[in-house]
Design a protein around this nucleic acid. Sequence first.
DNA 1: TTGAAAGCGCTAACAT
DNA 2: ATGTTAGCGCTTTCAA
Lengths: 363, 363
Amino acid sequence: MATIQDVARHAAVSVSTVSNVLNGRADRMRAETLARVEAAIQALQFRPNKLAQQLKTGQTPLLGLLVPSMANPMYGFIAREIESFAQEGFGFRVLIGSTYREREKESAFFEDLLAQGVRRVIVISSLADERHFESAVEQGMVVVSYDRGATPGRRSRVAHVMPDNFEAARLATQHLIARGHRRLAFATVAGMTMSRSAKIDGFHAAAEAAGLRAQAQLLDGGPLNEYGDAVIAEVGRATALQIAERPERPSGIVALNDLMALGLMAGLREAGLRVPQDVSVVGIDGLFLSALSNPALTTVQLPIRAMARAMVQRVMKNPDELDATEREQVFTELRLVERESVAPPPGETARRAPGKKIEKTNP
Amino acid sequence: MATIQDVARHAAVSVSTVSNVLNGRADRMRAETLARVEAAIQALQFRPNKLAQQLKTGQTPLLGLLVPSMANPMYGFIAREIESFAQEGFGFRVLIGSTYREREKESAFFEDLLAQGVRRVIVISSLADERHFESAVEQGMVVVSYDRGATPGRRSRVAHVMPDNFEAARLATQHLIARGHRRLAFATVAGMTMSRSAKIDGFHAAAEAAGLRAQAQLLDGGPLNEYGDAVIAEVGRATALQIAERPERPSGIVALNDLMALGLMAGLREAGLRVPQDVSVVGIDGLFLSALSNPALTTVQLPIRAMARAMVQRVMKNPDELDATEREQVFTELRLVERESVAPPPGETARRAPGKKIEKTNP
DNA sequence: TTGAAAGCGCTAACAT
DNA sequence: ATGTTAGCGCTTTCAA
């Protein structure tokens, strides 16, 4: 690999002149000099060594990205959007890591990022407690966290971007209610996160508003195991098998997310229950997979790309140009996508014509 | 961030002594000195700056990983396995990039990796032509490529790891034939890659062996668009819609991969055809999603984890300790997982009892 | 057993 | 307009 020295020699100029052209200060020199330097760069196939640049400037064009598990299609999608935008918009590459939602893995990753000179990090759905990386922030890192709010009472320097989880679950639940469902359930996994509790609140709020609070139950599935979030579908399946034998089984279920809904549907089917004839299911996320299932999943579409962009934009800002209003960004562009997994409850007539498919948009 | 200088000062030793303890040469000093240095490291929370180490040593504990699209669950899964193993086994972090199978994006990524000091790269399912990164190899990069063989006639320094694609497709096709299918089809997307053509060959070989070559057709779907590989399911759906109206429609279809199979099933259903009663479908991959579909997808399970490990192991070797036999590693541990998407063709009696579910394992 | 010093390749004052 | 030079934080001879 050619160095800046080689280029300087080849062009018969000093290294600083080469450095100047490298750093967009071509105006400081004669056109002829510039041409010579560029020719030399071409001839030698010179690429500035980023490590050296970074050591010198303290800046690394690398973005740290922590996800619970890359094998989860939801995170895969967000990750891809983040990566594309970081690359196209800022020339940053992405250093990624699966954390399996383990505190130790998260900490270790932050340590490495710090040592690696990475100063910008996006954390997806991390643990409830984010104190273990607050220290990284104090050391100058810019971090934005997805799908969790700031911890109340603590003035965090971590920015937060998230969908309106409360509203998403409320919308889903409301849809079930509008279709005539009375026995409602929200299917989640073991362990509480901010986003999960917001969804549960939204679910309860919708039930409450319809005077159905007493009939709204929580289905708490098992824990996610070592394989990370992809098994959430398995939890859904187990939950389905479990409720299938209950006499007072719910007729309409809102799932924590699409993957869980998919698992739920598989489990329900295994248990001999038909969706939507016997049980209706609504997801949250709007994964492309939800359109592929049988029946196609009715779900609340989240503005993933917009959030991905917002996160990148936010994480690229320098600490000093922080806008206080950007501390917490909640995305409310939710859209209920009606497909085939919801029908009136068994033995009841539809309260309104299921008629033509309407896409309700939330303001 | 504390530097090695700070530590040296704090411990009242020279930087080289600190460097020695950092690099496991503690034997060269008195126990007391070692203790002082360690205490100082502790006290100052010192973490050696990797950038500086790298600039000096020319080694970066970073693994480059190119995938067509992280949004594709298949690649998400492989990526996660690679990342976990690279981290646990070698302390390497992963620099990832979606290439959308575009030559330019691949080249640009290689350029960046080179400049970044990354010397080890795993490329998943890249373009047919890999000359654009052969030059990177010549500059000392160790690269292993997934799911494509070495270009015949060229002595490549790129290592290859792949499943036995021919056998996978053959197994899938054979299964359909054993169930009584005569009108066979292989559904693929536009554009040929080595792995695709190997699968097509396997499909044809199985048909040939059963004297069905004339009735084995290729279903060539549209191209993958900008969104990358996740839309392969869309292509599958389009293909299904297209064949549904053909009088001589195939009764058994082998899909390029599970995602395509999922799309195919959705499309078939949309067209009013039942799977497996009207059309049988077999996938290839063994994604966790294939167990969730309705009907659950019969598929050929590939040894993903084993391949991921092999790739990491291989890419971590130094060029001089290359074993010629490792140039190309083909994984043959294929397993047909029978689920629900295959039945005898309509209007025909099963040639053998569909009976108990058997998992055929390939030696 | 420990320390001094020369870089790794680059940037950015500061000189000329 | 161009050149000289002092580091960035670390590793590693080579000396002491």
